[in-house]
Design a protein around this nucleic acid. Structure first.
Lengths: 155, 155
DNA sequence: CTCCTATTGCTAGTTTATCTAGCGATTTTC
DNA sequence: GAAAATCGCTAGATAAACTAGCAATAGGAG
């Protein structure tokens, strides 16, 4: 054995507690998305696509079917069907890509934005309210944590 | 209009930044789980069930098929199939429930524990390492944040 | 410019994982 | 002790993913 048994320090306990907090939080988020999915009567991928489109629109970026496919880790064939479902419901419109005749850009409709915020809005408000229990320094620490740990995971 | 326009304060900016950090972190976690799913060549539900079993086993609790069903928000019929898949791979065993003849308890095999930690272990280690950049107070703030915001979401 | 290769989104057909409905065994309630 | 509820299961139907292959377009090499 190259390793001696190590006593579990208070620091170790704290880190373990943080790990568990992350796990529980992720579960909460999953359930939250599940709630939205139920409320909107949609499947998980379709909601995820909508979420992506909202985020990318806010950034002023265009989104192609191809990008949706890779973001959701599904095939382009499945994405075609997904977009068919969203178009049928009137949530998105497919437009020609201005510079690439093969491609399309997927654009949210007003209806989609409206329904999306109707169902996500109240949940986001609850999150935002819960954040009032934290001062600026704490919030900054949280932000640094989430982006640090998140980045560490992406390698 | 019953509401005047409000200037966006630095505090508002910070809270917004925290919201975005949460969103990005959730995406990272999703991709992480996706990686495990790919590595283990399993579907999302099966991995989620395994995760649940590991957590509950660590707590010294028994898990019935029924509980798996409600935790994953799928029907008991789907859970039967799910457990068939996991049994076939040798990841779980169904045992009779000691006090209730209708029920079963689902028990992880050594193989499952082994494979689970082989694939999750390195990712959890990366998370744990990333946490070394934070002192105890920061970590405590993060824990309070995750559990507070998580709880707020569950209502 | 012309040819060749790569890329994009789509269709068609297949597979997988879910669902609903209903059943036998067992437990709980009255 | 009888009636109702619960548990996990089977059977058959549905939804959403997959693979393979296609037409249209783009882009690079000669």
């Amino acid at each position: 054995m190259s390793e001696r048994w190590m006593p579990r320090t208070p620091r170790d306990e704290l880190v373990l507690e943080a790990m568990e907090a992350v796990r529980a939080f992720t579960d909460s988020m999953d359930r939250m998305y599940g709630g939205v999915r139920d409320d909107m009567d949609m499947n998980a991928s379709d909601v995820a696509a909508l979420r992506m489109l909202v985020v990318r629109e806010r950034r002023g970026e265009w989104v192609s079917p191809h990008e949706i496919a890779s973001h959701l880790s599904i095939s382009t064939a499945s994405t075609t069907k997904l977009l068919d479902r969203l178009s049928e419901r009137g949530h998105v419109v497919r437009r020609p890509h201005p510079h690439d005749g093969r491609s399309r850009i997927v654009v949210l409709t007003d209806l989609a934005r409206q329904e999306f915020f109707a169902h996500f809005g109240q949940r986001m408000r609850r999150m935002r309210d819960a954040m009032e229990d934290f001062d600026d320094d704490e919030l900054r620490a949280v932000i640094r944590f989430l982006s640090g740990v998140g980045t560490a995971l992406e390698e």
